[in-house]
Design a protein around this nucleic acid. Sequence first.
DNA 1: TCTGGGGTCCTAGGACCC
DNA 2: TCTGGGGTCCTAGGACCC
Length: 426
Amino acid sequence: MDSVIALIDCQAFYVSCERVFDPALRGRPTVVLSNNDGCIIARSASVKAAGVPMGAPVFKWRDELEAMDAAVLSSNYALYADLSRRVTAVLETMSIDLERYSIDECFVTLPALDRDALRALGERIRRRVRDWVGIPVRVAIGPTKSLAKIADEKAKADKRAGDGTGVYVCPPEPDLDVLLYRTDVGDVWGIGPSYEETLREHGVTTAAEFRALPDPWIRSTMTVVGLRLARELRGQRCLDLDLVGPDRQSLVRSRSFGAPVEAKAELRQALAKHAQRAAEKLREEDLVARGISAFITTKTHGPPPHYADEAQATLDEHTAAAPPFVRSSRRLLDAIYRAGPAYRKAGVMLYAIRPRRPHQGSLFGRPVQDDEALMQAVDRINGTMGRGTIGVAAAGLPGDRDWTMTRDNTSQHYTTRWDELPVARA
DNA sequence: TCTGGGGTCCTAGGACCC
DNA sequence: TCTGGGGTCCTAGGACCC
């Protein structure tokens, strides 16, 4: 093999982003919350060490966080997305090929050097991202994506011990087998709770035992996905780098409500807002969609009643204009709404997505160009004067009560809004 | 009282076609 | 009594990821 794969993983990414701009947070225990300030979705090392789990509802950990004097921040996705882009821009100056896997991880290919040289290269990557963007990253290297993921787990573990370098290179066989024997099968990338349970029932508890299973058994129990995984752990490359990024299949906009909602009119407005935002996102990505589904749900935890339903519709033609999706969301709500329950969340999903091409008007109805010109004007105004300045009336007016979200403690948009740039004082 | 918001891929089964 | 053998497309649901 003339190349290896490195996983570049930003450490406690959201927390690190906040620390770039607020030095007072460095060294202070910090968590970042999900939308609506519900769950803990990023934790500094000290908070992790205190046993606060990922995804935990914040209300269960208030006391512990207070005792640690932890900073509790609402999420600021515009900031994180921007810094993520800067991290990949730095990597592009150094690596051969790059796949952006998620907001805080990417895969790159590196030349197949010996272990020491790879470690040194990993260090250089790490240093450059830290110096140029201010975000600490781990670099985990292996012959395949799945083994790079294993290496990342190992690097994380080293970090916890306190003296890890943040760079880990998979050893060759037979040391690799030893490493995999020490890796819990549930910690393998792609093996979730359900497969883990099945495997344990068959006496398989380590990654090494998993990759040694017979192919037909894996295939029939875990589909080809499982088989690819096992082969990757054997060093056989089955998952290629997705260089251009896959074409989008679907697009979801949804939010939990700050407080329960019963009124149909409010659900209608929420769905209209989501439909409008989803269409805006389509236009940003130069896509059009034809399918829409709308869903509403009550709480899903705790004692019943729980209620959730969803309905779908197909538009006459592909479009990225807001009005057809908004109209459709209203009809879909009529189909699924039941009076009575207190709803906690609503959203829309667009599907049947493809790239926008000119002149895709249908034989029926208004020509698309009208909508297109209108939407261009809308985007221009919102681009200049701020998101939400104008939009369909069904989505509510800018001055309306913002019932959609609780966000008590958001940092500034340091890098994406002129009026919130950091200020340097001499 | 308070539990996120995105995504992807795979399979089975039904409808429909010749 | 006997009742083909392919295809394709679509959808629902399950599994996983960050």
